[in-house]
């Protein structure tokens, strides 16, 4: 069916009363996501939308409402603290939407993650969606359709582009995971590919990457050795000037590392169908996947 989230997900939203948090939580509830609690320190006891209980701490949301996934919309200066609070409450899956968290804070969070059983997705990501069951994040729900394609991406709108191409062609997605555009993130391309590899209901995989780092190359190496499912990919940033940060903090080519060419080469070497342009992502998949 899916990976990580489904109709049994019990979501707590950290920062539920803020402008971004409340707006997107309403969208997610409309989609059918089971939002069981919100957290805003100092606003415990309130009800969000007259239905969702708001707590002062994440621990209360876990103890009282049985929350098992956390979404974070807390502003950047306080977001790392919110992630750490969710880890301490032993929430198994934490999805950090917040953009602009200092890298130093994320280095500390990453160190803490390694001593916990929590999986972090993001930060600086659109979130995760299992179409028809559960949407956590800021993606437009209606462009998705339940189906067999697993999608992992560092970028938000570029993911929508791929999703829309698959949906327009009459197919659908098992789960779409936005891992975020920051240099330090919780879940990598490789981690997401492993999940799709093991998911019996994901038939094909789309990997969307961009310049910077070597995460796409690591995923490609794993696919080459282990994955029999058809895979397609697109890498953004072939025309980006070296040394400049292209919007995403992680999208920077430095010292000749992280170039689009190196990534495309690794993907092709792994037998992955690579799209020439962002308009041809579904087409690239259909070359290797006959649904």
């Amino acid at each position: 069916m899916s990976v990580l989230v489904n109709k049994d997900t019990r979501l707590v939203v950290q920062g539920i009363t803020g402008s971004a948090g409340s707006f997107h939580t309403i969208q997610c509830m409309d989609y059918g996501t089971n939002v069981v609690a919100g957290v805003t320190p100092g606003k415990g006891g309130q009800k969000f939308q007259d239905s969702v209980p708001v707590f002062d701490t994440v621990q209360e949301a876990v103890d009282i409402e049985g929350a098992n996934v956390a979404a974070i919309y807390v502003p950047p200066p306080f977001a790392a603290d919110s992630i750490l609070e969710a880890i301490d409450a032993e929430i198994p899956l934490v999805i950090a939407i917040t953009e602009g968290i200092p890298v130093r804070d994320m280095a500390e969070v990453k160190a803490r993650l390694s001593t916990s059983n929590t999986r972090l997705i993001g930060p600086n990501c659109p979130g995760i969606i299992t179409p028809g069951e559960c949407k956590i994040g800021i993606m437009p729900g209606y462009i998705h359709r339940p189906g067999k394609v697993g999608i992992v991406s560092r970028s938000g709108t570029l993911t929508y582009e791929a999703v829309w191409q698959i949906t327009s062609a009459g197919h659908g997605q098992s789960t779409c995971i936005g891992i975020g555009g920051d240099p330090i993130n919780g879940t990598s391309h490789l981690d997401a590919v492993k999940l799709f590899h093991e998911d019996p209901d994901t038939e094909a995989i789309i990997l969307i990457g961009e310049i910077g780092g070597t995460a796409e190359e690591e995923a490609a190496a794993f696919i080459k050795e282990n994955v029999d499912k058809p895979c397609a990919a697109f890498i953004a940033g072939r025309t980006a000037p070296p040394g400049r940060r292209m919007g995403h903090a992680g999208a920077i080519v430095s010292g000749g590392k992280g170039t689009a060419e190196a990534k495309v080469e690794a993907l092709l070497d792994a037998g992955i169908s690579v799209a020439e342009t962002p308009s041809h992502i579904a087409e690239a998949l259909f070359k290797v996947w006959k649904p």
């Binding site: 938000g156 709108t157 993911t159 582009e161 969307i208 940033g237 025309t239 980006a240 400049r244 919007g247």
Partner: peptide, 26 residues
């Protein structure tokens, strides 16, 4: 970010903005 070409672009989202530059070049 200023570049030296002649086709300007305005996009929402960093990944899509980069991909849009790429497709102009393509």
């Amino acid at each position: 970010i200023a570049l030296d070409g002649n086709v300007a672009c305005m996009v929402n989202g960093a990944g899509l903005a980069m991909a849009t530059m790429d497709i102009i070049k393509h």
